[in-house]
Design a binder for these strands. Structure first.
Lengths: 113, 113
DNA sequence: GTATTAATTAAGGAGTTGCTTACATGCAGA
DNA sequence: TCTGCATGTAAGCAACTCCTTAATTAATAC
């Protein structure tokens, strides 16, 4: 994997773990230090650090260092793309219209050429 | 894996691969055989079979056997839960209201007790 | 300076993923 | 029944995930 996975795969992969989803849910309450974040989990600090790295790699959190505390902040932008993908596939009605659109555009391209 | 991951993790994990997302997109056009599905990918048939198993495990497709062809059909129900989770975290405004709701419910529970 | 606190990095191990090739299964038609 | 086609299963391998404990960095307080 020399090039690394695409952004959307990184986001979905980050969300594919209950601990990481719980961390994101807790971050909705506002920026939080790693220690506070780790407290409710029966898991070592390094394990939490590694989960945070996965979330950071997906762009879902930002870590800023103030003194010896690292504050984690929620970043929701990557979820827009994820939400768009899911919703596009979720609703069969819209899908049919999407496909109709594509067909029409194809036809238009053909008659133009 | 005696207990296995939860349903939501399975769905996000299934979506965390471009090949599988492409398969789902292609299935929006209607039920398709494995051969047709595999055709555009530079990948062996067994690899596609394994991707289909991941999608089936997540409940995102259904496989039915007619003659020697296995027909794959899209199932969008699992995406509802995924969409709900993402949307709940996507919009900061709604999150704040959700949190306010939770706090109010907590307070109510406390005064009741 | 030394000690304490907060967090990360390093190293390692059990299990999983994503692919491969080779083999097996199961149906259809001569 | 034998042949061919569509698909799945088995086995193997490199890379990755998710956790661990031990060592390290960095800032604060004495």
């Amino acid at each position: 994997m020399q090039n690394g996975p695409d952004a959307l795969s990184l986001v979905f992969q980050a969300l594919a773990d209950p601990t990481r989803r719980e961390i994101l849910s807790r971050l909705r309450g506002g920026p939080t230090t790693v220690g506070e974040l780790a407290e409710p989990f029966a898991m070592s600090r390094p394990a939490i650090s590694q989960h945070l790295r996965v979330l950071e790699r997906a762009g879902l959190i930002e870590r800023t260092a103030t003194a010896q505390w690292r504050t984690c902040t929620l970043r929701t932008e990557p979820l827009d793309e994820a939400s768009a993908w899911v919703d596009r596939h979720r609703d069969e009605w819209n899908e049919r219209f999407d496909l109709l659109d594509e067909r029409l555009r194809e036809l238009k391209g053909q008659t133009d050429a």
